[in-house]
Nucleic acid binder design. Sequence first.
DNA 1: TCTGACTAGTCACATTCTTGAGTAGGGAGA
DNA 2: TCTCCCTACTCAAGAATGTGACTAGTCAGA
Lengths: 189, 189
Amino acid sequence: MALRHAVLAALLDDEYSGYQLAKAFDIGVANFWHALPQQLYAELTKLEKEGLVTGREVVQETRPNKRLFRVTDAGRAELERFAAAPSKPSFIRDDLLVKVQAADRVGTAAVIEQLEERAAAAAAKSELLAALLRQLRGDADEEEFLRSGERIGPYLTCLRGLAFEREHRDWCLRIAAVLKERRTTRAER
Amino acid sequence: MALRHAVLAALLDDEYSGYQLAKAFDIGVANFWHALPQQLYAELTKLEKEGLVTGREVVQETRPNKRLFRVTDAGRAELERFAAAPSKPSFIRDDLLVKVQAADRVGTAAVIEQLEERAAAAAAKSELLAALLRQLRGDADEEEFLRSGERIGPYLTCLRGLAFEREHRDWCLRIAAVLKERRTTRAER
DNA sequence: TCTGACTAGTCACATTCTTGAGTAGGGAGA
DNA sequence: TCTCCCTACTCAAGAATGTGACTAGTCAGA
């Protein structure tokens, strides 16, 4: 039931089309929720029916028309209610971790490769998020921005995302190194 | 489709009943996958039908009987195949992060409280995982264990879990502090 | 000029996950 | 003795997620 709240939270700052929202769910919003475009379109439709967002058609010349959505007062109230309700614990679900768990009982070559790919992806995402953070805080330094910035919500979740990606990168690299070394050691026996 | 592989990976080391597995999915296995008992029982039944695990009935006197499962060769082969296939990217999904995203547009009091609760939970989980790690590596120190230990898969995923929980705790505490200070500052205006 | 990528969506189906309830005996503590 | 918690599982129903395919015009580069 929280996709709707993730959508509402993402729409707080600005109007977005479903398409733009889908992009946001790939970058900034992905730090706290992940969803495919189809889900977003469906959720926006539902939210509009329930009056939590309103959409307006924007006619475009050279591109397909689009619908821009914004949160209504009822939507804000719903978010308020959600914020006060108890949260479900977060959890990791990761194919790659499953593979690592099995690592010394199945072949490691493919897993090492995937760890290195993942590390590279995490590093790239880190840079992207670091750039996004710089952009969000403008000229101010972080401490000052967090004290007196207008809108810090997205910044805070990006911080979490950045920490996660860096941690993930480090772990992937370390594990890949460990598995590699073990492979060498065993070959020598 | 990866719950099945998480189950297989969790069963690699030992025989477990559905009930025991459910506990493992609350502690160690939770570092890479999360599932409710009902899902596990259902998955074990399916896996048995497909010949990837075998179960044997254990009759108990003072407690209900139970079925212990172990991975078959076909199951190991399936894991092997899975390890070689490309992984889906991991992602976070967290109610609390959604609330933080909305933080300066809705009331923060409840969110601050939840952040502190969550920090405490993450700290507790960290200690639990640290203890589990100590137990897994026995007398050896980490580096040595990772070089020459028999079975390091579970250790490696626990390391990830520990890093995640610590990171999460730190973030929660920091964000709670930031939101608190802003509340004070604004009250003064 | 052809190809592929981008904008902006929609539809239908399948799988997975969550919620809630129920069964049933044993042991521990008030 | 009564109540609650622990072991050990099962069933059903519904909500949430994911997969795959399809439409259709625009624009950039080979």
